[in-house]
């Protein structure tokens, strides 16, 4: 467990409770498992932990700009198709014109973005989710 949370300490009252759920992970290394009075995961504490904020930040910093980017690229294509007929009709190879090429490029950009996100999620999101789940005593998915 490389980085222990700073803020996700168990609540004072909850820590010593005898009815805490049996731990799945190494207690001696002091991994806190935020639980509230009803022995449910303490979501407020998890939400404020630096690990969770890091996860949320990583996700949002990746998906928000990328969503804007692909939406802009799609809209550019649509606007060109609606208003730039002459440009879209320029033939490139035989009967194949810029319009058809740009349309097919939309297909390939979709696949590229999908691949990019899947790689990112595997490397940057999934391990962080696992870490937070461990700390919350939720076990692997």
């Amino acid at each position: 467990m490389p980085n222990l949370p700073e803020s996700a300490r168990p609540r004072a009252g909850a820590a010593g409770k005898p009815d805490r759920a049996p731990t799945l992970f190494d207690q001696q290394r002091g991994i806190p498992q935020p639980r509230d009075a009803d022995n449910r995961p303490d979501f407020l504490q998890i939400q404020q932990s630096s690990e969770f904020r890091e996860l949320r930040g990583r996700l949002r910093r990746f998906v928000f700009p990328l969503t804007l980017a692909f939406f802009a690229w799609y809209l550019t294509y649509v606007l060109l198709a609606a208003y730039a007929h002459d440009f879209m009709s320029i033939k490139i190879l035989g009967e194949i014109n810029i319009g058809i090429v740009l349309g097919i490029l939309q297909f390939f950009s979709t696949i590229a973005i999908t691949t990019w996100y899947v790689r990112f999620a595997k490397k940057r999101l999934d391990p962080q989710v696992e870490l937070i789940r461990k700390q919350a005593g939720a076990g692997p998915e």
Partner: peptide
């Protein structure tokens, strides 16, 4: 606020 924390944590990690 509590429900928001629960939803946000749950949606991102599946906890709960």
């Amino acid at each position: 606020r509590r429900k928001h924390a629960e939803m946000e944590v749950r949606s991102l990690t599946g906890i709960g």
